[in-house]
Amino acid sequence: MITAEALTKNYGTKRAVDGVTFTVQPGKVTGFLGPNGAGKSTTMRMVVGLDRPSFGNVTVNGRRYAEHAAPLREVGALLEAKSVHKSRSARTHLRALAATHSIPNTRVDEVIELTGLGAVASKKVGGFSLGMGQRLGIAVALLGDPQTLILDEPVNGLDPEGVLWVRNLARHQASQGKTVFISSHLMSEMALTADHLIVIGRGRIIADAPIEQIIGGSNVPTCRVKTDSAEDLMNALAAENVQLTRVDAQTIQVAGLDGRAIATRALDRQILLYELTPVKQSLEEAYMALTQDEVEYHSHLGNELAATSTGKQG
């Protein structure tokens, strides 16, 4: 379990992480989602003590990470691919880290096999592709067979097979009762991997909820209806809590009524419906809705100005 309380990090005058409080529970995969520069990596670096919090604190299983007697057995962390000397082989890198905790070399060979690095383990890391670097980073994280896994963008640079492997690994570790904390800016990946989501933007927590709840969003049922009598239908459905949007001549989007209620009212007025589709918000849309004001780097000048003014208000 990871517990952060009012965790804050300032770099000079810039506040990278702004008083975040959250708990990462064991037995679940917790996704840490946010745009680039939102503070994901900084938060994770503070968990393992590479960065010192400016305010607040963060503990792993009740203690600061550095206070554990065997940190590598407590937390396995992949922070950035290629956190290795380029002239060193993957195996030597792992053995040197294993030596600090008296982890046997058999375990080093085991994680090399587990991550599919067997063929390149004796080669210099400098020649590794991004994907191989990620696998080595994951091998390091697994070395101490830790209770808690922290993976910062683990699928970056991996091929589809590798992505699937990371997903299975995360789910498997969580099913063993371990704490799994994965950051990503890919919402689609998180939708498939995570049970719980913590969404961060501009250093602040925007959402912290089970994944279904975030996809469910506002919990207002929305349906898309097709009919030839669009005007009549809109009159029939109009009510205080119902939002009607005319999509085209035949199509209306109805928010605030479920399919049964729409069909019942249409039947009362003898209006023929030939399509009635519940619209489910995707994680992508939920994420965009959540983070639209929080994105650090917009691609258009107009948005950039908007973001700047938002920033000043905040």
């Binding site: 057995r73 008296s102 587990l114 599919g116 070395l143 067979d145 299975n168």
Partner: peptide, 23 residues
């Protein structure tokens, strides 16, 4: 490398990582 097979994740054999502390 892209064709290399990653084994299905499995939990390590008991004690595979030993029980040594940071020293």
């Amino acid at each position: 490398m892209s064709t290399a097979t990653m084994k299905r994740p499995r939990s390590a054999a008991p004690g595979a990582a030993g029980s040594g502390k940071l020293s």
